[in-house]
Structures are given as C-alpha cells and as structure tokens.
C-alpha cells in the first residue's frame, strides 16, 4: 500500500521537473528582424494550459537555426516554386492565380484566421479548400492533391504573407459546432494504444517519448518542412501520422473530421505568431 502511495508521489514530482526542462528559452527572430511571438499566455478557452509554445522551442539548436534565416530554410525552395505557379496559366479557363489576385501579398492576414466557416455554404473550410476551389471552379483546372508539393507549396506561400501576425481563428458563432467536434476528437483516446492528442501534447509536452521531444502539437508553423521527409508536410498529414502511431484507423486527409480538428488545434494556438513555413526534424 505504502509503496503505491510513494509511486504516485514520485510520478507527480517527476512532471514539473521535466516540464521545466522542456521548451528552451531562446527568442524566435526571423532574418534578424522579425520578432515572433513563440511563447504567450494560453487563450481563455484552453483550460489545461497556462502558457502556449511554438513547436520551434522543442527542436534542437541545429533544426532551430534552419528556421531563423530564409536563406537557410529549406522550405523556401517550395515557396519559390509556388511563386512561379501563382503566375502560371493552367486549366480550360486560361487563367492563373495572378489573373484574379492582385499579387500574393493581398493574402496578408488570411492564414491567421484559417480555418473559417464559408459564408455561402456554411461549411468549415481550410486553405487547401480555398485553393482548390479557385483551381476547379475559376481556372477549370484539376484539383491539386492535398499533401502534394504544388498544394503545400501554395499553402505555404499564402501562409507566409501573414508571418509574424498572431493566430486568431474564430471559435464562436457558425464555427462553434465544428470547434466542439474538433475538441471532442482532441480528447478521444483512439487506437489500440488508447492515446488522445491531449495525452501526448497536453499531459506530456516537454517530456521525451523515446527519441522525440514532445511539443504542444501546435500548427502555427504549418506547412512545415520536415528534414526526415525532405518536403513540406501538411497539417492533415501530421494529424494522420500521430493517429496512426496510436495503432488506430486514421481519418483521411481532407476529411471533414480533420477540418474540424484543424480548427480546434489552430484555436489552441491563438496568440502565437504565424510561423509558416517552419522547419522540423
């Protein structure tokens, strides 16, 4: 009996120490001039965290360094390709993005409020939806593959226009039911390992899980360039990977479930700067 009480006490004591050893104390400044908010007070709706951190704080010095200078950031190759794609005519209508949009800079601020509810359809939409809607309806071109290079390059290019702005997705009004659905998913213990997002990213952030330093699982840096895969990783691809790792049947990229989860996870990061495109191991 006594031993059990003792273990419980040790278990409790272990956590604060590990958490303090968690995120590093560096400041995230891009190109020596853009000060990012990578640590801030948690938004009011978040009951179980006081402070929120960008995933950048949990990576090694080497990985961090790749993100602080755009010349070193390997994601920028894909962003440059997207700049070309933006001006490339494709599809039966004979138009490019640039035919309708007055420069990609006109999207400044958009990423900070995504996902959002589309006023016309009442449906929750993410950046990939907005891009593919232009491609199919207005350009009469083929939709891009969700996690493909063209799509994620364009998502990154548009996101980059808001870099440094605080994430601020709406969770009330029309968005409320989607947000509730996403929240429910975040706390559901999926798979044969019975682990929820919260088990890893809320209960254990700052702790090592095998060789991985657990972050709070924020998406303000997405799409992120992942060194392991040498390409841009979409938000839904990351969700899929995390759920698969619980020995669960995942949801599909571009599914309504992942749209709702994306809204909820984005809202957990309200207040953090848009960091797109971040670099991860």
């Amino acid at each position: 009996m006594n031993t059990k009480a003792l273990t419980a006490i040790t278990a409790i004591l272990v956590f604060p120490v590990a958490v303090m050893a968690g995120p590093d104390e560096e400041n995230l400044v891009i190109n020596g001039e853009l000060d990012m908010t990578s640590v801030t007070k948690a938004p009011a709706h978040l009951e179980n965290l006081d402070t929120i951190y960008s995933g950048w704080h949990f990576r090694t010095d080497e990985t961090q360094a790749l993100q602080i200078d755009d010349f070193d950031n390997p994601a920028m190759i894909f962003v440059d390709q997207a700049v070309d794609l933006f001006a490339t005519v494709d599809g039966a209508a004979g138009e490019s993005c640039a035919s309708c949009h007055d420069g990609v800079e006109s999207f400044k601020g958009l990423q900070a409020s995504m996902p959002k509810v589309d006023a016309e359809s009442g449906k929750l939409v993410v950046m990939e939806d907005l891009i593919n809607r232009c491609r199919t309806d207005r350009m009469e071109a083929d939709a891009w593959k969700w996690s493909g290079g063209e799509m994620q390059g364009m998502v990154a290019l548009i996101g980059l226009q808001s870099r440094g702005m605080p994430m601020n997705v709406a969770i009330d009004g029309d968005a409320a039911p989607y947000w509730e659905q996403g929240k429910e998913m975040y706390y559901t213990r999926y798979g044969q390992l019975e682990l929820s997002c919260a088990n890893c990213h809320e209960d254990n952030w700052g702790n090592m899980i095998r060789a991985d330093h657990l972050s709070q699982g924020m998406i303000n840096g997405f799409p992120t360039y992942r060194l392991k895969q040498a390409k841009l990783i979409s938000r839904h691809n990351r969700f899929r990977g995390c759920i698969r790792d619980t020995r669960a049947e995942t949801f599909a990229e571009g599914s309504d479930e992942f749209r709702a989860l994306e809204l909820y996870v984005a809202s957990r990061g309200n207040g953090l700067s848009v960091e797109t495109p971040a670099v991860r191991q």
Binding site: Y190, G191, Q192, E194, D203, R240, R244, E249
Partner: peptide, 28 residues
C-alpha cells in the same frame, strides 16, 4: 493512465491494423 494495455483485444475506438493507419481486416 496513458500507459497502454498490452493484454486486451477489444473495447477500442477506431482500432487500426497495427501501425498501418488502416482498419483491421481480422479480429484484433
């Protein structure tokens, strides 16, 4: 607890076929 159960074969939410991310084709 977050610790998984290692000798249990039912009662899961969306269990998968090991780490494939797919639904299992046989009983767990």
């Amino acid at each position: 607890t977050v610790m998984p159960a290692f000798y249990k074969d039912d009662g899961y939410i969306r269990p998968g076929d090991a780490y494939t991310g797919k639904a299992p084709s046989a009983p767990l």
